[in-house]
Nucleic acid binder design. Structure first.
Lengths: 179, 179
DNA sequence: TCCAACATGTAACATGTTACATGATTCA
DNA sequence: TGAATCATGTAACATGTTACATGTTGGA
């Protein structure tokens, strides 16, 4: 349900192509929502035929043509309606935690190996988020005001990753028997 | 993909019915994976016809009959194969964060109202997890050993909720302009 | 008398993933 | 010469949600 609304939130700021939006899902917004490019293109098509978006083809000489989507009044209406309805609490789905939960069936060394891989991923993700934070902090106060709310979501991303990494360190010690 | 494996992990410990498993998804395991009862029943049927589970009907006089599923050797094999493959990093999907990200389009009072509702939910979830932790801590050392790995996942759940609530307090202050 | 817990499902629909498909440009 | 980035999609399949459907027992 919320992919549509994630796209609307992004498009409420700027018109964008499916490709642009997919890129944004790899960046900051991707921390709390994401979708494959295939799904984004499909969804944009649906939203356009529902009248939420207008689509213009931008011809580019050096690069492939772009389909630029712009939010319509109907789209803004749909966004506002959605925003004023309560959001469902989020659901966490983490396959690694299932493995850890059922990790008795696996040698400890394997569990630790996989934990280490996840630690590497989370570190990468954390430093990416911290990079965005630095960009934000380099802005003027006025510009910061504009991104006040996105910055709040970024802060949750950062603290969640830090919390995860701290937990992973403890967990690693327990698994290696150094606890 | 991982619903099957969540169920296998649970069934590797004890035979259980669809209802039992659904209840477990509301408890501790539900922190990192969950499914509706409809989906669980459907999945169990699929797994049984794949030979991963055996199904026996337990006739109860005072309550409705139960279909008790038991993991087979093939099921254990599938579980082990899955456990030894790397798990994909988890994806976070939180509609409330999209709303906050795009919250410019909404009055602050509404955002705060919704934040408060989510705070209440997270507090509830935290105290539930802490209840489970207390049960764990009441066990003997030997019993604790058995649940060592599930306890690790529980600790992540608890610290995540605490982290979320701390962030929510800060966020609330920013939104009310007391920052 | 009504609600919660116990117990299992079907059907329609919505959402998301994976494999496949194309083709230009830029950088190493 | 080969990979990465830009740019858009189709088709098959897997997963998940919502509405509907049924019926018992025990407690407030």
């Amino acid at each position: 349900m919320s992919l549509k609304h994630s796209l609307l939130v992004l498009l409420a700021d700027n018109p964008a192509s499916g490709y642009d939006l997919s890129q944004q899902f790899k960046g900051s917004v991707g921390f709390f929502w994401n979708a494959s490019h295939q799904q984004v293109y499909k969804e944009l098509k649906t939203m356009a035929s529902a009248g939420w978006l207008d689509c213009d083809t931008e011809i580019q000489s050096d690069r492939p043509d772009k389909k630029v989507y712009t939010i319509t009044d109907a789209g803004r209406g749909a966004l506002t309606r959605w925003l004023s309805q309560p959001a469902k609490p989020n659901k966490y789905k983490d396959a690694f935690l299932i493995k850890l939960y059922g990790g008795r069936h696996l040698p400890r060394t394997e569990l630790i190996k996989e934990l280490d891989e996840h630690i590497a991923l989370h570190r990468k993700s954390l430093s990416k988020l911290q990079g965005i934070e630095q960009e934000y902090q380099a802005l003027t106060k006025d510009q910061q005001q504009l991104f006040e709310l996105p910055y709040l979501t970024l802060k949750l991303g950062i603290s969640s990753e830090q919390n995860w990494l701290a937990w992973a360190q403890d967990t690693r010690e327990v698994l290696s028997g150094n606890a």
